[in-house]
C-alpha cells in the first residue's frame, strides 16, 4: 500500500516542488547572468539581489487582468498555454535525479517512473508540447503570432530529426531506452567522450527546439515582436514562460543524463552532482544567448537539413560500424 501510493505521492510532491523552484529560479539566474554579461546588475530591488523577483513576478501576473483579443479563437487561445505547461511538466517524471538510497529500511529511487522507453517518452511529449506554441500563435488572431506559430512548427519538424538521431547513437552505445540504464552505463566513462559528435548535434538541435537564441525564430523579439505569445498576458503568459523554462530545465537535465554522466561524480552526493551539471548546461545556454546574434529563418532550416541531419546520420552509421567491429 505504502509502496504503491504514499511514497510515489510524496516523491511527486517533492520532485515537482523542487523542480518548480529551480525552474522559477532559472528565470532569476538568466536575468542576473544576462545582466552581468551586459554591464548591469539585473534585478536588484525585490529581496537580496532580487532573489524574490520571480515570486513577485508570479504574484503580479496572477493578479493581472485576463485579456482575450476579439478575433482570437477563444477556446484554443485559452487551451494553448495549458497544453504547453502540462506537457512540459510531465517530462519531469522520467528524469533520474540521483542514485537510489535507503531511508527507514526502504529503497527509494530518485525518479518518479522508469519506463523502459524513457527517452522516447521525453522526445514524444516534448514534441507534443510544441502544439501549445503552434496553437497559441495560430489562435491569437494576430499575423505576428501566426507567423511565430508557423515558424515553431517548422522548427519542431526539422530539429526533432537530428535530435532523435543524436539520441539513437546513445541508445546504440548503452543498449537501452531507459534513462536510468543510460546513466548507469556511464559509470566509468561519460558519453560525451564516446559520442562527442552526437553531443554537439544534440546541444545545437536542443537549443533550436527550445527556441532560444540564436534559433529563437518563433519569438524573435525584433522581427515578430515576441511572435507566438504576442497577445498573451497575465497568467496565460506566465504559463508559457514557465513552460519554456521547464523545457530548458528538462533539456539541460537530458544533456546531463545522456552525455555528462548523470548523477555520477566524486565526493558529493549524486543529486548535487546532477543539479550542478544541469545548471552548468543552463548557464551555457544563457551565455550563448548573451553572445550570439540570431540566425535567419531560412538559414536555420538550411543548417538543419544540409548540415546537422547528415552529420547525425553519419554519426549513427559510424557508431554502428565501430560497435560491430570492436563491440
Amino acid at each position: 500500500m505504502n509502496d504503491l501510493i504514499i511514497i510515489p505521492i510524496i516523491k511527486l510532491l517533492v520532485i515537482f516542488g523542487v523542480c518548480m523552484l529551480f525552474i522559477t529560479y532559472t528565470t532569476w539566474l538568466e536575468r542576473k547572468a544576462l545582466g552581468h554579461f551586459q554591464l548591469r546588475y539585473g534585478p536588484m530591488r525585490v529581496g537580496y539581489h532580487g532573489l524574490l523577483q520571480p515570486i513577485a513576478d508570479g504574484i503580479k501576473n496572477f493578479f493581472k487582468e485576463e485579456v482575450v483579443p476579439d478575433n482570437a479563437d477563444r477556446a484554443v487561445f485559452l487551451l494553448a498555454p495549458v497544453i504547453s505547461i502540462s506537457l512540459a511538466v510531465m517530462l519531469l517524471a522520467v528524469i533520474p535525479f540521483g542514485d537510489s538510497f535507503t531511508l527507514f529500511g526502504k529503497r527509494i529511487d530518485l525518479y518518479l517512473a522508469n519506463p523502459s522507453i524513457g527517452i522516447l517518452f521525453i522526445l514524444g511529449f516534448a514534441t507534443i508540447g510544441s502544439y501549445g506554441t503552434i496553437l497559441g500563435g495560430w489562435s491569437s488572431g494576430n499575423k505576428y503570432g501566426y507567423m511565430g506559430g508557423l515558424r515553431a512548427s517548422a522548427m519542431i519538424i526539422s530539429y526533432e530529426l537530428s535530435m532523435a538521431f543524436a539520441v539513437v547513437s546513445i541508445i546504440m552505445v548503452t543498449g537501452s531506452f531507459s534513462l536510468v540504464d543510460m546513466v548507469a552505463a556511464q559509470h566509468h566513462m561519460w558519453n560525451i567522450v564516446r559520442e562527442p559528435v552526437a553531443f554537439l548535434v544534440f546541444l545545437i538541435s536542443g537549443i533550436a527546439e527550445l527556441n532560444r537564441t540564436p534559433f529563437d525564430m518563433p519569438e524573435a523579439e525584433s522581427e515578430l515582436c515576441c511572435g507566438y505569445n504576442i497577445e498573451y498576458s497575465s497568467m496565460k503568459f506566465s504559463l508559457f514562460f514557465l513552460a519554456e523554462y521547464t523545457h530548458l530545465f528538462v533539456f539541460a537535465s537530458l544533456v546531463t543524463t545522456l552525455f555528462l554522466g548523470g548523477w555520477h561524480g566524486p565526493i558529493l552526493p549524486g543529486v548535487v552532482w546532477f543539479f550542478v551539471k544541469t545548471f552548468i548546461v543552463i548557464f551555457l545556454c544563457i551565455w550563448i544567448r548573451a553572445t550570439i546574434p540570431r540566425l535567419r529563418y531560412d538559414k536555420v532550416m538550411k543548417l538543419e537539413w544540409k548540415f546537422l541531419l547528415p552529420v547525425a546520420l553519419a554519426n549513427v552509421i559510424a557508431t554502428g560500424v565501430v560497435l560491430t567491429l570492436f563491440g
Partner: peptide, 16 residues
Amino acid sequence: HALDIGAMTVIFYAFR
C-alpha cells in the same frame, strides 16, 4: 542594429 539582428549585449557596451 545589433539588437535587431539578435545580438543583445552590444547595445549595453555602446551605451556605456
